[in-house]
Design a protein around this nucleic acid. Sequence first.
DNA 1: CGAGCGTTTGATCGGTGTCAAGGATCGTGG
DNA 2: CCACGATCCTTGACACCGATCAAACGCTCG
Lengths: 246, 246
Amino acid sequence: MSDTLSPLAPFVAKLAKTTSLSPADRAALFALPHNVRAFEAGSYLYREGERPTHCFVIVSGFACAQKIVRSGSRQITAIHMRGDGVDFGNALVGVADHGVQALTRVQAAQLPVAAVSELIAGSFTIARAIWIQTLIDGSIQREWTANVGRRDARTRIAHLLCELGIRQEEAGVCARDDYDLPVTQEQLADATGLTPVHVNRVLGNLRMDGVIGGRNRHVHVPDWNRLASAGDFRLDYLRCDVSMSR
Amino acid sequence: MSDTLSPLAPFVAKLAKTTSLSPADRAALFALPHNVRAFEAGSYLYREGERPTHCFVIVSGFACAQKIVRSGSRQITAIHMRGDGVDFGNALVGVADHGVQALTRVQAAQLPVAAVSELIAGSFTIARAIWIQTLIDGSIQREWTANVGRRDARTRIAHLLCELGIRQEEAGVCARDDYDLPVTQEQLADATGLTPVHVNRVLGNLRMDGVIGGRNRHVHVPDWNRLASAGDFRLDYLRCDVSMSR
DNA sequence: CGAGCGTTTGATCGGTGTCAAGGATCGTGG
DNA sequence: CCACGATCCTTGACACCGATCAAACGCTCG
């Protein structure tokens, strides 16, 4: 298969944004044994407490990392999209402290942990590139903690919409100011630490104010700076190379 | 200097818990150029937006990672203690997305980023060990997101007290059920996404209920399981090897 | 056409924030 | 040794954001 058609291509492209990869490195990455599997919306890539046997690369759709607290409510701790590597840390540590669930129908490439582990051991450049991805994930995670901890509902939701827009633009899926968001308001609530009802009201307000347009699981942003301002959003934490204004 | 007396010893010991280090690896770690510096409470190890020139290893005291949101309030995203490596990711990525501030008087060993970078490049075992630490930090970060997102104030605070107890026990500082916590209630509030006033009330309740004892920046836990239950705390996410019951 | 799921809206409740004042503790200087 | 100021803790009254409960509405797919 041509590399550009490999399901791993978006992932490799993402790595290449932070680390210059030699042809040999690229070849080693594309040579990773993998098979693409479809997950229905709501199904689990793996569950909290399991010992994952595979790492994943998302090919299409949205998945989320989540934790369940005793009260039964869940917190979504990350949203994964096309080109994202999911928990390559599994190659190094054992039991998963969180579950990964498909938010929509998801196509994901499965990579055996052992193969990833070998690849990392075999190339410092690749190890470094993947490590940097996990550091960026960590940066996003910190931002999420601040988001649910210290921002009000409106700002929180606007911030999430900004992040999803930028990351999808970065992944080459679509434009930041016009994208599909095929997730329910309940899922947005679990990502922002709110209730579905309140998410609904806040989205309504944002729409009434003209900050966002588009109905029915589609986000349209008439004025990016306005949304970014509403969401207290600065994109440095994403460590991507796109510029802010539009 | 004898290795056991090196300020890096607690850090190396922590690495050794997840990765078996050869004598050469240990020697390379202890050979890292470093100087120990004291930071007054409230001073910054580095600030958000800076490009750090050093990594740090905490020798004594407490430091925190923090982000400031537009409203001016801050979210503490991590608490660092003896033996913790602070942002070794700085060796790989550039600008800091968060600041690191001393919560108490802190002694920290400063390691030039270039030296850490070289060390990582020179030993896969060490790189792996440090990487695993950053993965554990990530696991803690996810737990914090869930904590501020989906737990009520009482549970949130109890959870934090559990984590701090276990981590200090792991670091060999003291017992989990009897430790000094020389931070203000305002700082606890910033760590849990609450207000100082409410933290005060909740701590009062926990004390009245006998879940915690000890006044004045000292935590005493009469019944560990009771606190763990109040905090919805399971220690798997810390990936440490101590057992739960006591 | 009906069932199921998600969205929207209204009414009400409660946990936490805000504002304010007084009390405790501690370091510092006279 | 005491006075003083600064900082933090504690407590009370009240406000408000977001949660909860409930019901109607609108899709989509058998």
